[in-house]
């Protein structure tokens, strides 16, 4: 088990190192000069260009040798300093991100966990019912193939614009101030529902299909055949295959995290929901590279932490990993 965690943690550590290095390198070695474009956007008069550029170069630490820039970058990062936002100048990037993070997490966590749970249950049921399976299979593949933002647009159009059941945009009504009254919480929930439903539906299709395929595979496995030949009840065999099929689904959860996060980003954009996705859009529109890079590092860190948590769960669920036999996730 120590070997298992040691290996996993070193991979995550290396990944974080690579991510930070890439993050540092891209602005410095890509064609184009971010400071140039920023100065060009901000300055009105030609005589202010030079002082502006000098100011920004000193401000963002471009006036020292490269190796020192790299070390400074790590130093600042470890102190939680991701630079200053250009879009909301002079707010630090960390505070902008911290302000939007709760909205993204509030969407992502319930959507991921509930869709995983419901998808697995439904997939297991679909696998044992021929009629349900035949109707669900095409629908399920269509659902996994649906771009998140499109489903968001369609849901918003039908349920918010056409029938006016839900609000179209934002996290809460502009007329309300955030507080813990019932009116506000209810308003918050109503705004939360459609983005959540978008994430849930698309992810649900994927989990259900995965579970269905795994169950069918497990029912062909030797242990199922053996149990069958012993005359074990079908329900028992189904239960065993469900538990075995869950293991790859847990690994799948780790692999799909990136895709769901991406889905959350674009869904937020459709609903102008003030999470990380909306911040990303604003950063892109305003050429706010520091904010963009901050969001990138936050997403990478979040995905790595989630990966590690999933590894822990895997160890709890699969005894083979505890006994040093590595299991399937290795």
């Amino acid at each position: 088990m120590r070997r298992y965690f040691g290996r996993k943690l070193s991979i995550y550590g290396l990944t974080f190192f690579v991510a930070v290095t890439v993050n540092w390198m891209i602005p410095r070695f890509m064609p184009g000069d971010p400071i140039e474009s920023m100065v060009a956007r901000l300055t009105m008069r030609p005589e202010t260009v030079e002082p502006m550029r000098e100011y920004f170069e000193r401000f963002f630490g471009y006036d020292v040798p490269l190796w020192k820039q790299y070390l400074n970058f790590w130093g600042a990062l470890l102190q939680g300093d991701l630079g200053t936002s250009v879009w909301l100048f002079p707010r630090p990037v960390t505070s902008v991100i911290m302000g939007s993070l709760p909205y993204t997490l509030g969407l992502l966590l319930p959507a991921i966990l509930l869709s995983w749970w419901a998808g697995n249950k439904f997939g297991a049921i679909a696998a044992r019912n021929r009629w349900l399976d035949n109707t669900f299979l095409p629908v399920g593949y269509l659902l996994t193939a649906t771009p998140y933002m499109w489903l968001a647009l369609v849901l918003a159009f039908l349920l918010a614009w056409q029938f006016d059941l839900f609000p179209l945009a934002g996290a809460y009504s502009v007329t309300l101030r955030p507080n813990w009254s019932w009116t506000f919480v209810w308003d918050l929930l109503r705004h939360w529902f459609l983005p959540f439903a978008t994430l849930f539906i698309v992810a649900f299709g994927g989990w259900a299909i995965g579970m269905r395929n795994m169950i069918i595979y497990e029912l062909e496995a030797d242990y199922s055949r053996y149990l069958e030949s012993l005359g074990a009840p079908r329900r028992l065999i189904r239960r065993y295959s469900f538990r075995n099929a869950l293991l790859p689904q847990i690994t799948g959860l780790a692999l799909q995290l990136g895709a769901v996060v991406a889905g959350a980003l674009v869904t937020e954009i459709v609903f102008s929901y003030p999470g990380l996705g909306w911040v990303t859009l604003k950063a892109v529109e305003n050429l706010d590279f520091y904010l963009l890079q901050g969001v990138f590092l936050f997403i990478v860190a979040g995905v790595l932490v989630a990966n590690f948590l999933i590894d822990v769960v895997y160890v709890l669920v699969d005894p083979r990993t505890r006994l040093g036999m590595q299991g399937r996730a290795a």
Binding site: V18, A19, I26, A262, T280, L292, I299
Partner: peptide, 24 residues
Amino acid sequence: NVMTNIVLVLPTLAVLIIIAAYLE
């Protein structure tokens, strides 16, 4: 394998956003 695992855990879209944003 280490290389593959690193690229595997990195959220692809986040990397693409960063790269694309700097290409004018």
